[in-house]
Computed example of a mutant assay.
Amino acid sequence: MATLETTVDGIKMPNPFVIGSGPPGTNVRVIKRAFKEGWGGVIAKTVSLDASKVVNVGPRYAKLHSTDGKEVIGWENIELISDRPFEKWLDEFKECKDEYPDGVLIASIMEEFNKDAWCEITERCQEVGVDAFELNFSCPHGLPERKMGAAMGQDPDILGEVCSWVNAVSKIPVWAKMTPNVTHIEDPSRAALANGCEGIAAINTIRSVMGVDLETLRPMPTVEGYTTPGGYSSRAVKPIALRMVMEIAQLIRNEFPVPLSFRHRRGRDRSRRRRVHPPRWRYGASLYRRHEVRLWPREDDVRPAFGIHGQQRLRDLGRLQGSSSRLLHYPRRTGPHADRAQVRGESSQRSDGRQ
């Protein structure tokens, strides 16, 4: 029987459909609802140690309509990361994992260029049981005055150093989320992989200004008559995102061949092996706009491909000669990743006994 089950860095998912960091993961209530509806995983809204510095404004969304005005074809948002206390998030992470131990919960974290802060937020989140980390180097309006988000992700040297800090203390998989607001997405991706990240997430929204309301002569969205560049999302972003995913996949294929062992010096030598994996489909703002946390229509869209191509597993679709997904597919890790401490520790022995 065809299955959508997949394993990424030792994390078993019932399907590759993952809710991206944003409003659909803004608190434990909606996260638990997503697990109840059958989503493969949830990346919670980005958290930081000091939420008091985060001040969200309203309105913070703007729409781009089609020429006839009947359809929304684009969205811009100027929403920041979570403004809820970090301690509250820790309680909710633990509550969520206690109630849904098999639910894949990924913590999205963001901090300033401060080693102690990055190490603290990493250690405290993994203590309450999250399954992986996504490092937010990508938000186009994520507190740039504090050199956070895309402001950090656009500098590969800074990004790489932060990745090394996190990987030195993390015992669970670490993925770095790339900003599309760069000329060559390979550069920050290379820095993340070279400094120990197991994976790359792409992409965040595209920096944009939606326009001016000709009736009020105010920019959109307008807050007391003013606005700021925000992040553009919707269907038009997909081809851009796929191009960048392709570029990252080619980078990994050419510069980080499978299998790969390397030494990462931060405090002490750490040896690990990396496998890269079939793509995960991420849903974020579109779910929030439709007030929808349902999975099955998306499964129904994918399942017919198994019958057409005679395959039983998701990963096998990418192996077909001439498949359009070929550039995006790589073999899965052959060894278990449940205990990442071992992978990050002294032993570099594979599960099959080879070095």
Rank of each mutant, 00 (worst) to 15 (best):
V47F: 04
S48K: 05
S48V: 07
S48T: 15
L49C: 05
L49Q: 03
L49A: 07
L49G: 05
L49F: 05
D50V: 09
D50C: 02
A51C: 00
A51D: 02
A51G: 00
S52W: 00
S52K: 14
S52H: 11
S52C: 03
S52V: 06
K53H: 08
K53G: 04
V54T: 11
V54K: 03
V55A: 07
V55F: 04
V55P: 00
V55C: 00
N56R: 10
N56Y: 03
N56T: 09
N56S: 12
N56V: 09
V57W: 01
V57S: 04
V57M: 03
V57N: 00
G58F: 07
G58W: 02
G58K: 08
G58Y: 07
G58R: 08
P59S: 15
P59E: 15
P59Q: 14
R60T: 07
R60S: 13
R60C: 09
R60Y: 08
Y61C: 08
Y61T: 15
Y61M: 13
A62E: 04
A62H: 06
A62Y: 06
A62V: 09
A62S: 14
A62G: 12
K63M: 10
K63E: 13
K63S: 09
K63W: 06
L64A: 13
L64N: 02
L64W: 04
H65G: 06
H65V: 13
H65R: 15
H65P: 02
H65A: 13
S66V: 10
T67E: 11
T67M: 05
T67H: 05
D68F: 12
D68L: 11
D68H: 12
D68C: 12
D68Q: 12
G69Q: 12
G69Y: 10
G69H: 12
G69I: 14
K70L: 14
K70T: 15
E71I: 12
E71V: 14
V72Y: 00
V72A: 07
V72R: 01
I73N: 00
I73C: 03
G74R: 07
G74N: 06
G74L: 03
G74I: 07
W75N: 01
W75T: 03
W75R: 03
W75M: 12
E76T: 12
E76S: 07
N77I: 03
N77M: 02
N77K: 01
I78G: 03
I78R: 03
I78W: 06
I78K: 01
I78N: 09
I78M: 10
I78Q: 06
E79A: 07
E79V: 01
E79I: 02
E79T: 04
E79L: 01
L80A: 12
L80N: 15
I81S: 10
I81Q: 10
S82K: 06
S82C: 04
S82E: 02
S82Y: 01
S82Q: 04
S82W: 03
S82G: 04
D83N: 11
D83W: 01
D83V: 04
R84F: 05
R84Y: 08
P85Q: 06
P85Y: 09
P85F: 09
P85G: 09
